[in-house]
Design a protein around this nucleic acid. Structure first.
Lengths: 193, 193
DNA sequence: CGTATTTCTTAAGATAGTTCATTGGTCGCA
DNA sequence: TGCGACCAATGAACTATCTTAAGAAATACG
């Protein structure tokens, strides 16, 4: 019901006055979702920036053979959206699915643009947030081009211990770019060493 | 001598008045570099956001075995920096090297922050730029986890035909996360098909 | 509680990619 | 002209990872 988690998130960067908070209140939508619910499907434009209050999401693509590839997970206090589709209004090639029952706060495109206009410092906050995400993603690219599957798995466990415990291994395998069977083998190798 | 290419770049997003352009003039540094010159080395903080006017750069990491892994290339009208190190002032783990003789425009940390303060809409421009870069990087991650080396190579050629012609294959292999030998084999396979 | 569904494990054979050593071509430069 | 550095190509042996198929274990949900 309340958008307080989002306010808190923004205020961890910069403070807002009551006026500004009311603007948020009027432009942010609160939703609860069941497991397996999709908030984005291939072929449709991504209409929202979604802030996760509770639960866990995955963003994935489906290749020509029908295999799913997890591009990103998002848990509490993280954002998830197909940014490219969101800004261009073009059909997305991605899916976003709730892996657990979830509570989210969503901002639609025109509302986000309204907020950027009336609360300019929001640009600064989002710039900083996206820069941080960019660095994270760049580290993942480096891992992908420089490490073996085993190293990638160990790094994932270290870097995202929460996710590592919450997610089925099959989802983790898809994120790492390997088959579940091979991940199972790696886990066996680790256990017996 | 002139910082016009950077002004042009920014003005492709939003217009600036003369006052603002003079602020840029006072905070942006112009440099020419020879091939093989490094503008960032592991162990040192990344002091600049670098805008490439002419030439080509690669950003890479060196792993424990001494192998280099190309994380990113940058050519004309692109930015290059270790963003994480730049904002945190922590020693970088990366190198940035001119692959060709280059002309660049650089902004130091305190100057960039000064510009953000005095030209707030710069936050908006950079937010948009970084969002675009984020989308690009995300597509690369998807490629890495979902495609074979051959597919990645073909996509690279399609997506960056200029780079593909300008770079030695060994640099491309490093970017794709494969050995030069294997890339050579792939090229042979392509040629004979 | 019981059943359907999802997830995990195992293993054998196939394919993708690496490693190492070698060779030949090209280019800048003394 | 020739030397040295760099780059591309090749083949053989090796290692990493995938595919397929099956059964076992865990979990969702009526």
């Amino acid at each position: 019901m309340t958008i307080q988690p989002l306010i808190d998130h923004f205020e961890s960067y910069l403070p807002f006055d009551e006026n500004e908070k009311e603007l948020f209140q009027s432009r942010v939508t609160h939703r609860s979702l069941k497991r397996r619910h999709f908030i984005l499907q291939e072929g449709f434009p991504c209409k929202h920036y979604t802030f996760v209050v509770e639960g866990c999401f995955r963003m994935f693509a489906v290749d020509t053979k029908g295999n799913e590839h997890n591009i990103k997970f998002a848990i509490e206090n993280d954002w998830i959206a197909d940014i490219g589709s969101f800004h261009s209004d073009k059909p997305s090639k991605l899916f976003i699915e709730a892996i657990e029952p979830a509570v989210i706060l969503q901002i639609e495109q025109q509302d986000l643009y309204f907020l950027y206009t009336h609360i300019p410092k929001l640009n600064q906050i989002l710039r900083v947030i996206v820069e941080d995400k960019y660095v994270e993603l760049q580290n993942r690219v480096l891992q992908n081009i420089s490490s073996t599957a085993l190293e990638r798995y160990l790094t994932f466990q270290e870097q995202y211990p929460t996710l590592s415990r919450r997610l089925p291994n099959t989802q983790i395998a898809s994120y790492l770019g390997i088959t579940p069977e091979f991940l199972s083998k790696l886990r066996k190798d680790i256990a017996s060493s």
